[in-house]
Computed example of a mutant assay.
Amino acid sequence: MSSAIEDFIRANEGQSQLSDWMLVDQDLIDRFADTTRDWMFMHVDAEKAAETEFGGTIAHGFLLLSLLAPLRGEIERPRVPGLRTGLNYGLDRVRFVSPVRSGSRIRARFTISELSLEAPDKLREVMDVTLEVEGSERPAVVARWLTMYLL
């Protein structure tokens, strides 16, 4: 392992960053519903959803999961030495912990929990992600996001 990669791992494992707030409004929810063809009433019918325990429409879990990509794009990330490209390697342990009501604001906390050299030209990153809802103690989503960096 090169000293630059060793230094990068030492400097970045355990580091956390927080995105800016993002509004999850009904227009965003409706557009996601149209894209995925998931028109379940609790997402798109304000009148019917108001009669549920949620008191109104809520975002799709998969919408929230997909918003992690633009939220991650907002944070300042250190450049991996010798990086050719980064590839989304998948997600582990995804949980939809609490609903996000239409009109709520969310942000994501990204913590690099592990960096490991998988091969001389492959660095694997394990990032713990928590999607927070403004004004709520409970997160909306928790997950582990895996990225493979090709060196």
Rank of each mutant, 00 (worst) to 15 (best):
E53P: 06
L64F: 04
A46D: 11
L83R: 09
R10F: 12
D20W: 07
S113P: 03
R95G: 04
Y89D: 05
F62C: 02
Q17T: 14
I112R: 12
A119F: 00
H43F: 12
R101D: 00
E74V: 00
D45S: 09
S116N: 06
S116W: 07
L65T: 03
G73A: 07
R37N: 12
F96W: 02
G82F: 13
Y89K: 02
F41G: 08
I58R: 05
P78W: 10
R31H: 14
A108S: 06
L67E: 01
F8E: 03
F8W: 05
W39Q: 05
R93T: 03
T52M: 12
D38F: 13
L28T: 13
R95K: 14
R79C: 10
S98H: 09
P78D: 12
R72V: 00
R101M: 09
A46E: 15
A46C: 07
G55W: 06
I9W: 08
G103V: 01
A49T: 04
V94Q: 05
E76Y: 08
M40E: 03
L65I: 12
R84S: 01
I58D: 00
G56P: 05
A59W: 09
V100W: 02
P78T: 07
E51D: 13
E74I: 00
M42G: 05
T36C: 09
I29Q: 09
N88Y: 07
R105E: 09
A4Q: 13
G103S: 06
F8M: 05
A59M: 02
L115K: 09
A108K: 04
L115A: 07
V100D: 06
R79E: 10
D27L: 13
D45C: 13
E47A: 15
D34L: 12
E47F: 05
L67S: 02
E6F: 10
S16A: 12
H43L: 04
Q26H: 10
E114R: 14
H60G: 02
R109V: 12
L117Y: 06
V24E: 00
A11Q: 14
V44T: 14
R105W: 01
A49R: 09
P120C: 00
I9H: 12
R95A: 01
V44Y: 15
E76V: 15
L83V: 14
W39I: 00
A69P: 00
S116G: 09
I58A: 10
Q15E: 04
L23Y: 01
T85V: 11
